[in-house]
Simulated scan of single mutants.
Amino acid sequence: MPPDDSGAAALAAALAQLYAVAPDEFVTTRTRLVQEAKAAKDTALAKELGRARRPTVAAWAVNAVVREHPEHAQRLQVLGQRMRAAQAQLDAAAMTELRSERDQLLGTWADDADAAGRRAGRPLTSAVGEEVRATLIAALAEEEAMQAVLSGHLTRALRYSGFGEVDLSEAVVRTSSGAVLSVVPAAAQDEPAAEAGAPEAKPGRKGTERHTSPRTAAEDEAAAAREAADRERVDAAREAHAAAVEAATEAGLALDQARDRADETRWRVEELEGQLKQARAEHRAAEQAATEAARARRSAEVEVARADKALRDARARPD
């Protein structure tokens, strides 16, 4: 069945809005978009949006640079193609030359990512900065990782170990089709369409044999009752399906909210660990200053004692 272009456009627009907000606004924005989709009776869109995960700070910062600086994204893509080509050809001279260009571009991305974080009230820690750098290196190393980064819908940082493939599991927004921002699959028809040219089925016909004997009123009533029962079963199945979809959407939202809380606590732990590290450094400096001050005080006390003794000796001497 061909994709539903209008559904794909609505999903792309909603995701673009969702992944443009600051990390602290993600959950409330997603909830609002899901509610709006439900109000519009767009169950498929609500389900897709409910599956969208909040990005980590590093992933959000990379998305922000992709969105705000498309020229950097283009440079990254071109550089990745050149680096992979040089690697495939084992061109050491080209790799050495490109490494300098890579470092310059990574520095530009780092500055812009940090600026985006500061505007959102969340300056990037050194650990997050390293995750941003690792993500870009992974994109340069592998085409699929590059596509994930340039989608602008990254959900977590990437890492390339120097061999093998980059792990992209739960690293980028995917629709129920499993593709990155692909067209939302249209819902299957409730009943299969009749094949072109196929003879229409008629009551009383089986194969080429035709029954011409008239049906009694009781038989007509029984057939009507069966058709009514069939319709009721279909309606009940449809209602059960809609309820199951609704339950799955709500369960997905609950799961993502739990993940969001886990992410938030992890960010808070990172912040507290940074503050603790700074506090320990300040404590060590204060202890060192206190030790030096105590040493200076002892030296001063010794000098005072010497001065007192000298004064007493001077007074004790006769004129």
Rank of each mutant, 00 (worst) to 15 (best):
D4Q: 06
L11I: 02
L18H: 08
A20R: 14
V34F: 13
V34N: 13
K47F: 15
R51H: 12
A52N: 12
A59D: 07
N63H: 08
V65L: 05
H69L: 12
P70Y: 10
Q77V: 03
Q89K: 12
Q89V: 05
A93N: 01
A93Y: 02
E97R: 14
S100E: 11
E101L: 09
Q104D: 14
L106Q: 02
L106Y: 01
G107K: 05
G107W: 00
A110P: 00
D114H: 12
D114C: 04
A116N: 08
A116I: 09
R118N: 08
P123Y: 14
T125C: 09
E130R: 05
L140H: 08
E142V: 01
E143F: 00
L150W: 01
H153G: 00
L154I: 05
L154F: 13
L158T: 06
L158F: 11
R159F: 14
F163V: 05
V166D: 02
S169F: 03
E170R: 02
T175K: 01
S176Q: 08
S177Q: 04
G178W: 04
P185A: 14
Q189F: 04
P192E: 01
P199L: 10
K206Q: 13
A222Q: 15
A224G: 13
R238Q: 15
E239H: 14
A244Y: 04
V245S: 02
E246L: 14
E246P: 00
L272A: 03
L272V: 13
A281M: 09
A281E: 15
E282T: 09
E282W: 01
H283F: 14
A290C: 00
V304F: 11
A307D: 10
D313V: 01
D319T: 08
